[in-house]
Design a binder for these strands. Sequence first.
DNA 1: TGCGGTACTTACCTTTTGGTGCGTGAGGGG
DNA 2: CCCCTCACGCACCAAAAGGTAAGTACCGCA
Lengths: 126, 126
Amino acid sequence: MAARAKAPRVGPYLCGIDAAFDVLSGKWKALILWELHAHGVRRFAELRRGVPGVSEKMLTQHLREMEEDALVHREVYAEVPPRVEYSLTEHGHTLNEALGALGAWGEERIRREGCEVVGGAEAVAR
Amino acid sequence: MAARAKAPRVGPYLCGIDAAFDVLSGKWKALILWELHAHGVRRFAELRRGVPGVSEKMLTQHLREMEEDALVHREVYAEVPPRVEYSLTEHGHTLNEALGALGAWGEERIRREGCEVVGGAEAVAR
DNA sequence: TGCGGTACTTACCTTTTGGTGCGTGAGGGG
DNA sequence: CCCCTCACGCACCAAAAGGTAAGTACCGCA
């Protein structure tokens, strides 16, 4: 996992979607991105509270990977109670914007599901 | 896995991105979507050839899930050599369009990586 | 008559992913 | 005086995802 940057799946990538998905593969990455986008700058414990259900291990791991991928910026203050601040880089911001359309699609899907009670894929597809 | 439609992770969903990602979680789903989008209608074996590296099991599994999620339409012809044709539903098409921006972002990322040789996250983030 | 193709299903195995819980070391509050 | 907070690191474990290989029933082709 640490060597993910050097382990392409077959060729480097099959297409752009593939590359984008690689960067945010992980249960919580999109949520972290969103949280960071919404608040600008967040500390570790704030993110932990802002992303409900995430474990400390996963949060660190995902943050490190996103840092490697140049999506988030990590600022460490060598203070007595350790303080670390996370924020989005420019690439992080543009990724978030690219995610906008997908988010809208997802919300429409939630609406559909909410109305049609799920289970009737046939009915949804009409 | 078959009961995925009834197993929300914590609440129904945390946000739209979450819902969209749920629908295309799986190593090959995006590629299948793309392949179907590019060719309109494809048979099982055509998809198998069009998505390099996918196993038959995974292809069936993903196609079934995408059918459940109303992304693809499955047309079975009760003929002697079995024939099954897959195509995108309207929801599949709109999802693909929503994926467009993400794909563009990914391709830009590939370009960046190609130029900057990776490893210098600091240099990339600048 | 044996092989390849069509569209799967099933069983079994490996890899990957995520979760739990403990340790760290200094400061601040009850 | 004890425990809690911050921001992790490490070891171990469970679950899920994915891969491999085989079998199915039928056909056309050589």
